[in-house]
Simulated scan of single mutants.
Amino acid sequence: MIKHCWSILCQNIITDAETNVVSYIITIDNIMAPEFPAKIPFLAIGTSWEKDTGYDVVENFAIRIIAINPRGKAKTLVETGDLAVQSHRHRMNFVLNGFAFDEPGISRFTIEAKINGLWLAAASLPVLVAASQIQTAGTPSMMRQ
Rank of each mutant, 00 (worst) to 15 (best):
I2S: 00
K3C: 05
C5F: 10
C5M: 15
C5W: 03
W6F: 11
C10I: 10
C10W: 00
Q11G: 05
N12P: 03
N12S: 14
N12L: 15
N12V: 10
I13M: 04
T15V: 12
D16K: 05
T19L: 11
T19E: 08
N20M: 11
V21P: 03
V21I: 14
V22H: 02
Y24T: 12
Y24R: 04
Y24E: 13
T27A: 02
I28K: 05
I28Y: 00
D29W: 07
N30H: 11
N30A: 07
I31R: 03
M32V: 14
M32F: 13
A33E: 03
P34M: 00
E35P: 04
I40G: 01
I40P: 04
P41W: 11
F42A: 12
F42M: 15
F42I: 13
L43N: 01
A44D: 02
I45C: 05
G46P: 04
T47M: 09
T47C: 04
S48E: 06
S48K: 03
D52V: 07
D52T: 10
D52H: 03
D52M: 06
T53N: 09
T53F: 04
G54I: 13
Y55P: 10
D56F: 15
V57Y: 10
V57Q: 12
V57N: 04
E59G: 09
I63R: 01
I63V: 15
R64I: 08
I65S: 02
I65W: 01
I65V: 15
P70S: 05
P70I: 12
R71T: 15
G72L: 11
K73P: 05
K73M: 14
A74K: 08
A74S: 11
T80S: 02
G81F: 01
D82R: 10
D82L: 14
L83N: 00
L83M: 07
A84E: 08
A84P: 01
S87W: 05
S87R: 08
S87A: 02
H88E: 10
H88P: 07
R89E: 11
R89Y: 13
R89T: 15
R91Y: 02
M92E: 15
M92K: 00
N93V: 06
N93R: 02
F94S: 01
F94V: 07
F94Q: 06
V95M: 03
L96P: 06
L96W: 05
N97F: 09
G98T: 00
F99G: 01
F99H: 02
F99W: 04
F101P: 03
D102G: 03
D102P: 10
E103M: 08
P104T: 05
I106N: 09
S107N: 01
T110Q: 06
T110A: 09
I111W: 00
E112C: 07
N116K: 08
G117C: 00
G117E: 01
L118T: 12
L118R: 06
L118N: 04
L120V: 12
L120K: 06
A121S: 11
A121F: 11
A122C: 09
A122G: 09
A123L: 07
A123M: 09
S124R: 08
L125W: 03
P126L: 04
P126A: 08
L128C: 11
A131C: 15
A131D: 12
A131T: 14
S132V: 14
Q133K: 05
I134N: 10
I134V: 15
Q135C: 13
Q135W: 08
T139S: 12
S141W: 06
S141L: 09
M142C: 07
M143F: 11
R144W: 15
Q145D: 08
